[in-house]
Simulated scan of single mutants.
Amino acid sequence: MKRLAAPLAICLLAGPLVAQSGTGSITGTLDLDPARWIVASAGEGPTSTWTENDGRVEVRLVGTPDPEGDGGPGTLTIEMQVLAGPVEARAIDARVELQRTDGTLVAGSENVDLSLNAFQSTGGDLVLAGSVVATLTPDPTGGLVVDPQVGVTIDGNFQATIRDEAGAN
């Protein structure tokens, strides 16, 4: 699969991702406090992955708190199902999870607004960039959360290269 959603993907391949210890980052705010996570690519614990099947791509971005930045309280996971078209890719389903020491917060599709600015597979690796706004709650909530006092809001951007270490894609 070779698709380009925006010229930004080329910049991501040659840009500052090479200098980072992870394969990308997720930056933004968590309930208006600055937060930053490094996208986990390999090692212990959960890692970022992607698989393709019949034009749909399942993506799992796993972010661990950035030890040199503002960090984020816990491991952040963004899962999305992407419909990869000939011109653009669009997320058709998304889920966000934040695992903290005091419990896990979750946002299902109704409470996640995710958009992709870049989405391209190159040589088995997947390069993507986009933004996400989600309202996370302690218990997965069916339906839209409209009361801002009920959940925790994450508003951020992500950019990552997910390596195909096993050559499965």
Results as ranks from 00 to 15, higher is better:
residue 64 T to C: 07
residue 77 T to L: 10
residue 104 T to W: 01
residue 33 D to N: 04
residue 16 P to L: 09
residue 39 V to E: 03
residue 74 G to F: 13
residue 6 A to T: 11
residue 10 I to N: 14
residue 96 V to R: 05
residue 3 R to K: 06
residue 15 G to S: 14
residue 1 M to V: 14
residue 18 V to N: 11
residue 34 P to G: 02
residue 82 V to F: 04
residue 22 G to T: 09
residue 13 L to K: 15
residue 159 Q to E: 14
residue 28 G to T: 01
residue 160 A to P: 05
residue 147 D to L: 10
residue 66 D to M: 09
residue 26 I to K: 02
residue 159 Q to G: 05
residue 60 R to H: 04
residue 71 G to Q: 01
residue 109 S to L: 07
residue 163 R to H: 12
residue 33 D to Y: 02
residue 89 A to R: 01
residue 129 A to D: 10
residue 84 A to R: 08
residue 162 I to A: 01
residue 95 R to S: 03
residue 164 D to P: 07
residue 117 N to W: 11
residue 27 T to F: 03
residue 85 G to N: 00
residue 85 G to R: 06
residue 115 S to C: 00
residue 98 L to W: 02
residue 33 D to G: 00
residue 91 A to N: 05
residue 78 I to L: 15
residue 128 L to T: 07
residue 141 T to M: 05
residue 111 N to W: 04
residue 25 S to K: 12
residue 126 L to R: 07
residue 133 V to W: 10
residue 52 E to I: 08
residue 38 I to L: 15
residue 31 D to N: 05
residue 7 P to R: 08
residue 116 L to W: 03
residue 151 G to W: 06
residue 132 V to A: 08
residue 152 V to G: 00
residue 44 E to P: 01
residue 153 T to S: 14
residue 50 W to P: 13
residue 48 S to H: 11
residue 131 S to H: 07
residue 90 R to C: 02
residue 14 A to E: 15
residue 114 L to S: 07
residue 117 N to I: 02
residue 82 V to R: 05
residue 71 G to V: 02
residue 6 A to Y: 10
residue 104 T to C: 00
residue 74 G to L: 13
residue 119 F to W: 15
residue 17 L to E: 02
